[in-house]
Structure formats: structure tokens, C-alpha cells
Amino acid sequence: MSARPMIELRKVSKRFGDFQALKAIDLEVAPGEKIVVCGPSGSGKSTMIRIVNGLERHDSGTVVVDGIELRDDLREIEAIRAEVGMVFQSFNLFPHLTVLQNLTLAPLWVRKMPRRQAEALAMELLERVKIPEQAGKYPGQLSGGQQQRVAIARALAMRPKAMLFDEPTSALDPEMIKEVLDVMVELAREGMTMVVVTHEMGFARTVADRVVFMDQGEIVEAAPPQEFFGAPQTDRARLFLSQILGH
């Protein structure tokens, strides 16, 4: 394992108007490491991972991704975005393009890949997420679970070095959650660096190297899953766990 972290946040703060969304966050993610981020709604989870690929700008602190520091230079931000895949809660597939075109768009225009090669790669990825037969359909013709698997494949088509997931299963009907989590577990087995915001604690137990618990813009705890679930250190984490595991 190389010494350089894949993602490094140091004293990262972010405010929206008067509201302090992130308070001096520190986080390092090693290459190949899988992090699960959890915490109550509004605790800053989305803000944190959106800062990693420049969808939000941080006010202070440093963010380094794959050795590139995120500054105001748009070229550097674009370079980072090409290396970091992102999967959204609401899929955000391009509805005017077919599944295949959704997957080839960025390889064609950002990576300047020949079309035949981009399409071969897209088909290979659709095999991996187990929906090659949907290549010619439009996103509106697919189920939620299928759409999210296409979204994962679309991000993978850029051959990213790390993947960010923002609550990838919370917009799905219960019977579709498993098909998406299966794809993510598979991806983790292949060694992808992953930061996953999720409340799927089963997934966290199987896959995570560390669970990061956030509350009110701070990282309150960060520990391997057995430790975090077995012996949470803070009242805030105990309360949160009792709420999502309890009932």
C-alpha cells in the first residue's frame, strides 16, 4: 500500500450563510480503503463528500485528492472529478440519452476515447452490474434499482480511482436495495477506494474498514465496524445507533 492517502481532508470547514455545516473536519482515506459515513440528517455528510469532488467549495482547510490539492483552479477540479466517481441518491441519469449513451458520454468527451472502445467498455460494465439487456433503453423505462446500477456503471466508465456514494439506496423501494448493495459489495471486493454515506449497517459490517460517525458538522467517532457497533465511545453515537438499529 502506498504511503500517500487517496483522499485527505485537513481542518476543512464550510458554512452556508450563518450556518456552520462543517467544523474543521480531518479525514484520510488510504488507497483501497472503504469508509462508511453515517450520522443524523443535516450532520454534514453530503457536504463533506461533495467537497471531495468540488461540487461544493470549502471555506478553509485543505483537500488533497490523489496528490492534487483542490483550489479555485477549475482545471484541477476537473482533473479530480475525472478520477473520482460519484453516485447520487436520486440517480441523476441523463433522461434524454439511452443507457449506453449515458455510459459513453464522459469517456467520449472527457477521455476522448474512440466510440467503439467506449461502447465495448460500457457493455462490459453493464454486464458487471447485470443489466446488459437494457443498453438501448432510456432511464425512464427502468426500475429504480436498475437506474442506480446504471448510475454506478456510468461512474465506473471513467475508470475512477475512488468512488463516492451519497445515500445510494435511500430513494429505493426495499426490494431493490439488495441488487444495488450487491453491486457495491462486488466493487469493494475488487479493491476500489470507496466513501459511502449510508445507513445500511449490514453493508457497513461486511465492507467497511472504518465507520465514520458525524454529528453537527463534526466527525465524532471513526472506528472499525466491530468497535463502532460493539462499543460506541460517545453518547451521541449510542443515541444514533439506538435510533437506527433500535425499534
Binding site: N53, G54, L55, L74, E78, A79, R81, A82, V84, G85, M86, F88, S90, N92, L93, F94, L105, A106, W109, V110, A151, R154, A155, M158
Partner: peptide
Amino acid sequence: DRGQFEAAYALGLRRGLAMRLV
């Protein structure tokens, strides 16, 4: 939807291309 811009940016498309293609 703003998410369309964000998905395009997240794939590394710049603003002009995101506007034109997406």
C-alpha cells in the same frame, strides 16, 4: 434539475459541455 448539472460535472465535463450535451 440541478442534479443533471452535478452529475455532468461529477463525470468531469466542464460547464460548457455540460450545458451543451446534458
